[in-house]
Design a protein around this nucleic acid. Structure first.
Length: 210
DNA sequence: ACCCAGGTGGCCC
DNA sequence: GGGCCACATGGG
């Protein structure tokens, strides 16, 4: 439990808000280890700033992003994001996330490659804003535990924000805990037949239900 | 040879 | 509004 708590606290390791923003695009449908590789490569090439990324050669960025998959679109979207940040906010990513919460969210959603989940991840983990990330894992766990049976992103989000908390720290912890619970459960209890979260696939392995 | 991962956008009906 | 599909690499 203590270990779990520690890991939850470091759920989104980063040196800057901008790094969280870039990481949030890289991690889409991608294992975090691959994201770490790309971020480390960016760091060592001194690309981890909106200034540098707004003028990087697309081919070079694609090489860096490649381990994360979808590397062509992700590279293109990261450059567009970096340019937007440079042009509209003088490269200050915290300014992008400040002000009216709904407006900040709309700014993010207007960017290519940033949907609801990514926008809310950025607001919460990079900006410390009170937005719950209603990821697929969350939907599954809430549904299978009967807390809230729903597939609708907005419905899940407002349920948690109204019934659980609007404190950014608590929302972040709750989110990280749910996702981590699902993952560690999958690894450590592969045959938990009565578990409301898991199912067993044809190969005999356990997976989080979809 | 499968399946999966901290999604998004485009197109179709 | 829902149901497909492409996007792509690395790990189990």
């Amino acid at each position: 439990m203590l270990l779990a708590h520690f890991q939850v606290e470091n759920w989104w390791p980063s040196d800057s808000a901008f790094e969280v923003i870039v990481g949030s695009i890289l991690t889409q449908q991608t294992n975090w280890e691959n994201v770490t590789r790309s971020l480390d490569m960016m760091r060592s090439r001194e690309l981890l700033s909106s200034r540098a990324l707004s003028s990087v050669a697309l081919g070079e960025l694609e090489d860096v992003v490649r381990p994360c998959g979808f590397y062509r679109q992700k590279a293109e979207r990261i450059v567009a994001l970096a340019r937007y940040l440079e042009e509209e906010f003088d490269g200050d990513s915290s300014e992008l996330l400040e002000g009216d919460l709904d407006e900040a969210r709309e700014r993010l959603l207007s960017l290519r490659g940033i949907g609801k989940e990514t926008a809310d991840s950025i607001l919460l983990f990079a900006g410390g804003r009170p937005k719950f990330v209603a990821a697929a894992y969350v939907s599954r766990i809430l549904s299978r535990t009967g807390l809230l049976v729903s597939d609708e992103y907005d419905e899940i989000q407002s349920f948690v924000e109204s019934e659980f908390s609007t404190d950014p720290g608590e929302l972040a912890t709750f989110y990280a805990l749910l996702v981590q619970l699902a993952k560690s459960h999958c690894r450590t209890r592969p045959a938990c037949a009565s578990c409301p979260i898991m199912r067993e696939c044809e190969t005999g392995h356990a997976h989080v239900m979809k």
